[in-house]
């Protein structure tokens, strides 16, 4: 068979990538509390148990709160930066754009520790969900900017001018013309920032006060072996939600591309 070696490589690669994730639902529906093969009977007991844990509900609520606000902040700020970067010229543009993209490569531990110092010692505001939101916005913004940059780059700068010329104000031109055209980018940016924030651990771990986020809560659960199947069930749900969100995002992105008649250059899915 031609290219047999490469096919085998591709197969192993995909297996390595996705097998651990496939194990999640496998053990989530397994009736044994020990995570090992062979599988025992089928059960939904672990999912049922999820609904009863108060602390989990709190953590989930915290995470959703943080992720939603982070996604909105990051996308809004990213939109300002991307629009300025693509449509305007100003002194020091290069270094400024470089600096706001920097958190992309900063180690999260460093960001977490320095923000901890800032929050406690410098500002003295203590730790809360808002400190996590601030830090998550910081690390999500480069992703938002990168996504929105390409959305704005595809945009003809004279479109907004044309709307102004036809009687609209600056703001309504943006709302009527630019916003619908970059909407796929906005949805993509929001969902990616949401996902990054939702599963971010290090920063949340350092900056969390009395209210843990979901990853921090899951980490604390792992210390109790008998709770591991519950974590598996939780993970299964998270994977399902992620796939659902990305599918929705891709649907909107493709619809946007189709509507505006642009060439489809492939999405993030």
């Amino acid at each position: 068979m031609k290219g047999g070696g490469l096919r085998l490589y591709a197969l192993i690669y995909l297996l390595f990538l996705y097998a651990p994730i496939i194990l999640l639902p496998l053990f989530a529906f397994n009736s044994s509390s020990i995570i090992a093969f062979p599988l025992q009977g089928f059960t939904t007991e672990w999912f049922a148990e999820l609904t009863g844990v108060e602390a989990l509900h709190g953590a989930l609520k915290n995470s959703l709160f943080v992720a939603v606000i982070t996604a909105v902040f990051s996308t809004c700020l990213g939109m300002f930066a991307a629009r300025a970067g693509v449509m305007h010229q100003f002194p020091g543009k290069g270094p400024i754009m470089g600096l706001i993209m920097l958190p992309l490569v900063l180690p999260e531990v460093i960001v977490a520790v320095s923000l901890l110092v800032v929050a406690i010692n410098v500002l003295g505001i203590g730790l809360s969900l808002w400190t996590i939101i601030a830090a998550h916005t910081l690390i999500c913004m480069p992703f938002s900017i990168a996504i929105l940059n390409s959305a704005f780059q595809n945009l003809d700068a004279s479109l907004e001018e044309a709307a102004v010329d036809l009687g609209e104000s600056r703001w309504s031109s943006f709302r009527l013309v630019t916003l619908p055209l970059v909407m796929p980018g906005i949805i993509a940016s929001t969902l990616i920032a949401f996902t990054i924030s939702l599963d971010e651990f290090i920063i949340a771990f350092f900056l969390t006060g009395g209210e843990p986020t979901l990853p921090v809560y899951i980490w604390s659960l792992l210390r109790f072996p008998q709770r591991v199947p519950v974590v598996m069930a939780l993970g299964t749900l998270l994977v399902a939600v992620s796939i659902l969100l990305l599918t929705i995002a891709e649907f909107y992105r493709r619809r946007g591309v189709r509507r505006s008649g642009q060439q489809d250059h492939g999405g993030f899915l």
């Binding site: 001018e161 044309a162 709307a163 609209e168 509507r259 505006s260």
Partner: peptide, 28 residues
Amino acid sequence: PNRRPTNLVFQSYAIFPHLSVAENVGFG
């Protein structure tokens, strides 16, 4: 520009790609 009695035909035409022909023409 939006309060001047002038209208501009842009070099790139600046047709709004998300709107139909009638929506484009009726935009003003």
